[in-house]
Every structure is written in C-alpha cells, then in structure tokens.
Design a protein around this nucleic acid. Sequence first.
DNA 1: GCTCATATATATCAATTGATATAAATTCAA
DNA 2: TTGAATTTATATCAATTGATATATATGAGC
Lengths: 226, 226
Amino acid sequence: MARPAIPAAPLRTAADGYRKGEETRARILDAALTAFGNSGFASVTTRQIAREAGVNLPALTYYFGNKRGLYLACAHAIVARYREGMGAVAEVSYAALGGPLTPDAASTLLKRLFAALARFLLAAPEAQNPSLFVQREIASPGPAFEILYAELWRPGIELATNLIIRTTDRRLTETEAQVRAILMISSLTGFLSGLPVIARTAGKADYTALVIAALDGQIDALARSD
Amino acid sequence: MARPAIPAAPLRTAADGYRKGEETRARILDAALTAFGNSGFASVTTRQIAREAGVNLPALTYYFGNKRGLYLACAHAIVARYREGMGAVAEVSYAALGGPLTPDAASTLLKRLFAALARFLLAAPEAQNPSLFVQREIASPGPAFEILYAELWRPGIELATNLIIRTTDRRLTETEAQVRAILMISSLTGFLSGLPVIARTAGKADYTALVIAALDGQIDALARSD
DNA sequence: GCTCATATATATCAATTGATATAAATTCAA
DNA sequence: TTGAATTTATATCAATTGATATATATGAGC
C-alpha cells in the first residue's frame, strides 16, 4: 500500500530523491495559501484548489491527508515565512530587551520592527497575503488557531508590548501597553485587508512609506503619553 | 400560492397584523447575525441558523428567500444599527465640516467620533459583533460587499479622512490622511477581533477606556505630525 | 532494461447542504 | 365562529463536497 497512515501536519514532506513530487506538493500548497487566505477554510473547496494547482483531487489527499491537513500545512508555511521575513529584526529586539534600554533606543527598535512588518506585509504578493489568513483564524478560531496564536500572534504582541513599555519608560502598565500593541498591529493588518478596496478609487500608490510614516508618528507619540 | 416571487432584500417584512411572524423573523435574523458574524457566509449552514433560532428549515426560505437573502438582511440590519448608534455623532461632524473649522475643533470632533465608535463596538454583545461581519466582507468581498462598502466603510473613511485633514490644518494630503483614517479604524476593528483571544489571559477589563485613551493620544499626535 | 517505490489519473461513494413541494396548523378579521 | 390569509412542519430532491478504492503512469537505482 502506497498511502501511509495519517501523520501530524505534513503528510508527505519530500520523499527524497523524487524531485517532481516535491514540486507538485509546493504547487498545491501555493494554491491553497492563496485560496484559503482570500476566502477562508469553509469557502474553499478542495476541487478549486486542485484545479488551481493543476492537479487532480486525490493529489491533495496524497500529499496532505485531507483538507484540514492542507490547511494546517498552510499555517505552518505562513509561520515559516514570517520567521524568514521578520526573524532577524525580532531577534535584535529580543536581545536588547535582555539588558538596559533607554526609551529612545526602545523607540528606535519599535520603529524598526513595525517598519519591517509593514514592508513584509505590503511586499507580499497581493493575492497571497499571509496577514488575512492569520487575521481570520484569530478572529474566529479554526483548525489552525493554536499554531498561529502560539507561534505568531502571542509572541508578536508580547514583543511589541515590552518594547512599548520601555519606550514609555515604564509609565504604562502591561495591560495599557498591550492594548497599544494590539491596536498598532491591528491597524496594519486591517489596512492590508482594506487595501484592495482602497486601490479601487485611489491608485495603488506606494502606501508602504505612508504607513511607516504614520506608525512612526504613533510611536513618537508614545513617548509623550501621560 | 402563498409564496411570492423573490424580491430584493427583505422578502417578508411584516405582513402587518400578524405579530408572531415578525417575531420569528427577528429570531432568525438574530441567529443569523450571530452565526454569520462569527464564522462567515460559507461556514454557516442554514440548518444551524434554523436550529439556533428554534425554527425549521423552510422558515428561512419563507422569510428571506434563500441563504443569500438572509445574509443580505443581516448586512442591512448592521447598517441600521450603525446608523442608530453612530448617526448622531457623525451628523455633528458632517455639519461642522461644512463651515470653517480650527484644528483644535476638528481634533475634538475626531476624538468624539472615535470614542463613540469604540464605545459602540465594545458595548455590543460579544457574540454578536457587527464589526467582524463588516471586516470579513471588506477583506474578501461576498454577497453583502456593496451594501457595507457604500453604506458604512466608504462614508466612515471619508468622514475620518476629512476630519484628519482639518485636524492637521491641511498639512496632510488626502491620501496621507486617508491612510491614517484607515489605520485608526482598522486598529479598532482589529482590536475587537483579537479581544476574545486577549481575554483568555488578561481578564476582561474595561478596555473601552484604555482604547479611547490610546486613540486620543494618536489624534493628539496628528496635530504635531510633520 | 527490470523492478519497485513514487506519483498521477479515473470513477465512484456517502454525507451534507440549500432548497422545495406539500400538508398541517395557527392567527386575525368580519 | 367561520374562513381565508398567514405561518409552521414533514418529507424529499438534486447538487456539491470531501474522501477513497483502484488502476495507470513515471522515475530512480541496480
């Protein structure tokens, strides 16, 4: 029997030696990321993904076990992409938080962090925005909630919260700083959701710079907060 | 034949004289608002809504034509709720924008507007948050996109944008102000999406005050922006 | 080139879903 | 109270969906 028992997340990772298999697996994952990201778990049919990926239906089962497995694989892929795109910048902040940190230095780190996040999110191919996938899963928990919450959402909020606390010279309570952190991150992800709609009327300008400028302004304001 | 041809949005509004019918119609709409709001159009089955509303399946068809009609009715209901909750505050700003307006006055109006929005959204029964419904539909347009975009999203963004322009004494371009407006509104709606998750760890504090304070800080920062 | 694991394709199943035909019951007005 | 309009309930349909059994093709290693 060729099909193994259903394992955890990635049913069939590589099958080393067979290049083509890995390619179709990637194609399926890619199509799934786009489809799930844009429409959510339930709205997307496995046939849609298969067609979009240029494979037939059983291929999904073959590589990912079932629809849920494919969805989870998408979540894992998104986490990996975030790590790849944001890991380095985040590391710097983590390291700095270990020692003493002046408000100004914290403010600079915070700006860098959000600028990197803005660039990362706005740079992603419009159709395949990881932020929407995450947002949806957090807003109404589905199969991938635990992964995304534990690996992305919570660490991200925590990091931003701690930087905000240092930026404000510990004048904010943890809860207050957390609210600020969530508001700032949400503003970014929310902006991305609305972007296709905005681009309707206004041209698709280089929003990146504008967004970063706005966030910088917010961070500067933090230092002056009561 | 008792069933009429399928009309626009509300298939059966009242059938005046029959009280009970209107009540069950309301119960269905209520269940639909909760279900659709939490999980989106495709994730929810008509049977779920019927069971939750305590009616049988054909009742949905009877009152709303079909699933899509019920979804649209939800959108209309949400628009009505927003108007009810925010209309007065928005009117004040609209009127003020008609004449001359000092930055300070604009700033005050902006603060009032966002405070009202925050209160409105955070006050809504947690399970039945209109913001999630709207957010979802804007992020990935569905049957109710046009309604929500034309009746809520666009007017809201426009109002906030114009107030921001006045707050900054016209130092920001329309696009810059629009970006700011979207970021601020998104921060609120995004915060709401995350709230159930936050309430996991931190207690369900009175986030309203904290959120309003944060938004006020942002608005104050606008006046000082480059 | 043979062989076997790997990969792709065909055909089909059982369950769910939105929707409807149709019948029974309820409500209000005269 | 009667009767017609309105509302609710039963049973069922056709289409879609996720999934699988099964057959065929492809590629790697000897």
